[in-house]
Design a binder for these strands. Structure first.
Lengths: 127, 127
DNA sequence: ACGTGTGACTTGCATAAAGCAAGTAACGTG
DNA sequence: CACGTTACTTGCTTTATGCAAGTCACACGT
């Protein structure tokens, strides 16, 4: 992230033309889909994401927000100018990740021990 | 991976009790779900995974196969004893990832340019 | 019996990403 | 005008990724 970094409708290196591989090129890491989850729950501000129970490191959050914006999954809009503050929200492309999050959550509920069902989240992912 | 490593019904560190976070603790990286994809397509042997178009490094493949087995998503069974060779197949827990792969593939088809629809894979994920 | 080949890994090392702590900038509030 | 808040950056250490090469067990041809 040398200079502006908040530019370029970005596509990073793509490993193959397989749809699963392409999705994972963008979403396949420990944090990206967790930020998406928070957006589905209605969070919009940097500090809100940072405060989540998983404790995402601040530099990684900043990096992922830039990437997600470059990829067109979220948009960043000022909600006040003074001091300048921005709200992050899902674009249609980002909102369409709902089935992915829903499937991941459903799988964990069925197969992983000691996961906590979150009614609010479940509702947001069902909608 | 110091000694045996193919033991322990493993659970690694869990960041929170959120179902999405728990899934991503296990599946949230660039390769794990790609191996799952290959398994859904019917591949079973080490060399077959290695030969995929994405070119997974051999040490990472070995590591992920151990993790997936420890997590109970796949099982490793000898299909001949001489030389000893093993086949990797999905357990029910692993097969239940189908909606996750399906959602990822569907999202990429709808939103990413130049992805190649794979009829064989689509059929396996629909089934 | 002996060299060649193949499948399934392991090991060593370089590079890249993740994670932590601390720092900065712009403002609002007492 | 010192102090707290929000939203980030920067620097540095640790962990993970990726590449190349090596190993091991056996099958096969000669």
């Amino acid at each position: 992230m040398t200079k502006s970094s908040r530019s370029r409708a970005g596509s990073v290196a793509r490993r193959s033309s397989c749809p699963v591989a392409c999705s994972l090129d963008l979403l396949g890491d420990r944090w990206t889909l967790l930020i998406a989850r928070d957006l589905f729950r209605g969070l919009t501000r940097y500090g809100e994401f940072l405060a989540g129970p998983e404790g995402i490191p601040t530099n990684i959050l900043a990096d992922r927000l830039v990437r997600l914006e470059q990829a067109g999954l979220i948009k960043r809009e000022p909600y006040q100018s003074n001091p300048p503050r921005h709200a992050y929200t899902l674009t249609p492309k980002g909102s369409d990740l709902k089935p992915v999050l829903g499937a991941l959550a459903g799988w964990a509920m069925r197969h992983m021990p000691r996961v906590q069902a979150d009614k609010e989240l479940a509702a947001a992912l069902r909608s």
